[in-house]
Design a binder for these strands. Structure first.
Lengths: 228, 228
DNA sequence: CGATATGTTGAGGCGGGTCAAACAGAGTGG
DNA sequence: CCACTCTGTTTGACCCGCCTCAACATATCG
């Protein structure tokens, strides 16, 4: 389950290097990080880290999807972000590695790169491409999280689903077809909904020309959907 | 209304320099920024910037409170953050100044320092204390925003109010007294509630030993409140 | 002391959470 | 190839929390 093939394989290295975060680094910083990164393969449902644990590293997702969530005192767990290939997570503790403020779980078979916080911090002191990459990533995540928060407070379930669909539609199309990259389960959590609510949202959107079969979603009129 | 006393007064400079963001800068970076920062005084309700405007600068709040919000298509506005003295905002576009992704409004008479993005970006290239300060601020904001998002999805209105109160209670106290630093209006927006809902949440907390008179809030039993 | 903002309270409605049951696929093993 | 099972999705019924609107109360400030 926890197959630490300590050194990066050629395939993993190439994936990692193509990441948004890594792509903007200087040659030297890149090669340092590629060499020190731990590549880890994990089975579906396995926990990557738990909230409250000591946090000496952050992660870069190579393949698969990862759920970030927090637990309430009653044991309910709430997703607030779903990471896909190329995403960086838990990077908020590069500045000061304390404890993970949330838990991370593999939603399916995944492969992640584990990167030492101390190392990156030291690298960032000397190499501006590293600090710039951190700043860019953090800014993007802050904007994205803010977006989600606002959406939660502003839009109803069908509107949020429509938003999600429109986000991954060709900008100008009459009709479109989308294939969800993961289970509806995950999508529900991502949108702050119970699975049942997501299901109902989809049926509500049927009247707006959205039809669902399995993971494939047909949108007959993109412009119409945008009005919701 | 928009009194640009272009140069920082001694008082403003000292406030600005004591900011969490500025305090960790090197002497040289600090003095460059202090000299180039524009100090701006604004009357209550005046708009600092509007979402979609071009964004060549970010802000550091010196005195007063500022509301950050976004508008829905129907004109409803949703607060997602309330900034107090010392807070930095709109810093997410240091990495790439595009357009402001939200609007900012003075909740009362405020004084802000306006700081040029390009300047900070260039400074960060050469001076690691600047990039480190940015990374720290961004990390903190990301964590805070995530916290708010999770609270929204996890807790009911009285619980969120209790959370807010407990956050500014002496950690271990039998009873406590808090004075809100701003109108309940603002607090409501901050917690993602309609003003009426906040009011009702306070009355719901009366049975848990919370009594409200104007801006002053008495908590008879802090431990009991923590159970909610 | 009136005049305008800000807070509170009540009634009603809608969105979405929860629980339970029916249903659909994907494996799995006979 | 067909049960059987496990897991994920859908649907229905019900309920609770919060938003909305409207009326009233209380501050705040001229």
């Amino acid at each position: 389950m926890l197959d630490k093939s300590n050194k990066a394989t050629a395939r993993s290295r190439s994936l990692l290097a193509k990441t948004a975060f890594m792509r903007s680094l200087s040659q030297s910083a890149l090669s340092v990080l590629l060499d020190s990164a731990q590549i880890i393969s994990l089975g579906a449902r396995s926990t990557i880290f738990r909230e409250g644990e000591n946090a000496p590293a952050f992660y870069c997702l190579l393949t698969g999807y990862v759920r970030l969530y927090r637990m309430g005192k009653d044991g309910r767990q709430v997703d607030f972000r779903i990471c896909g290939p190329g995403d960086v997570f838990a990077e908020c503790l590069v500045s000061q590695d304390a404890r993970y403020p949330y838990s991370a779980q593999a939603a399916e078979t995944v492969c992640v790169a584990r990167i030492d916080c101390r190392e990156v911090r030291q690298l960032a002191e000397r190499d501006a491409t590293v600090s710039t990459a951190l700043i860019t990533t953090l800014s993007e995540h802050l904007k994205a999280t803010t977006e989600v928060l606002v959406n939660d407070r502003l839009h109803t379930a069908p509107q949020r689903v429509a938003d999600y669909l429109l986000d991954r539609c060709p900008v100008d199309a009459g009709s479109a077809s989308i294939r969800l990259p993961f289970q509806k389960n995950l999508l529900a959590g991502m949108l702050g909904l119970a699975p049942e609510a997501l299901s109902r949202a989809f049926s509500a959107l049927r009247s707006a020309g959205v039809s669902v079969r399995g993971r494939v979603i047909q949108i007959s009129d993109v412009k119409a959907l945008r009005e919701i």
